[in-house]
Write a protein that binds this DNA or RNA. Structure first.
Lengths: 112, 112
DNA sequence: TGACTTAATCGTATATTTACGATAAACGAT
DNA sequence: ATCGTTTATCGTAAATATACGATTAAGTCA
């Protein structure tokens, strides 16, 4: 039993799925929003805002970092996080492309 | 141990996260693409195209249906699926809104 | 009616995700 | 050097997700 077949699809779809997975928890969207609003972007602030334990927030930050949407800089005992604008743009573009590709393919639905 | 705290965030974020979760597997994106390309949209065709067992495809279809991105019509022993265009637009809009809200909040990143 | 086709669901195994508390690591300050 | 602060990581528990084969259900057609 193989469990995952995520790697047997078109690169574009896998990439999109990766981004989507990253946004698939409201906490991570909330983190992005918080980072956008502040430029201090210290981890502790996020912990205060979210209804989650520090370790859990840290995990979500790790996910966001893994998919490249945020950048973390260690600054003494603190960690300074901010949004990776280029990567955000990349995601935006890919999303737009896939949606518009669906749009252009789509013809009238014959089953309703 | 509560396990999930998905429901303790802003509605908009939860909604976006739902959509994102739906797109978080390449198979489901591939299904949407296939549905866009054809208007016959019979389940069996999708099974032939994807490297997945029939039952697994059925499960993915169920997910897509649950979040409203596709509509299924039972047609005799077959199932005719198609994209729910309105819902797709809704997702597109929400995504665009959230991204542009990030954009407008974002100031220079102080940590790089 | 009975055989065939198609797709949903069930049962199951395994991987991953989400959450927490506890601990460790890294630094600043006293 | 020790203490306090901050954050990452570890260990763990429980929920979900992913995948499959087997079965069921529902309709078609001979």
């Amino acid at each position: 039993m193989s469990y995952t077949k995520r790697n047997e699809f078109e690169d574009e779809f896998e990439k999109m799925a990766e981004f989507a997975k990253c946004l698939s928890h409201p906490a991570r969207i909330a983190i992005l929003k918080t980072l956008a609003e502040r430029n201090t972007c210290i981890c502790g602030e996020i912990v205060e805002i979210l209804p989650l334990a520090q370790s859990t927030v840290s995990q979500h930050l790790k996910e966001l970092k893994k998919c490249g949407l945020i950048i973390g800089e260690i600054d003494g005992p603190r960690s300074c996080y901010c949004i990776n604008v280029e990567r955000l743009r990349e995601m935006e573009k890919l999303f737009r492309e896939i949606i518009s590709s669906l749009d252009s393919d789509m013809s009238a639905c014959s089953c309703t």
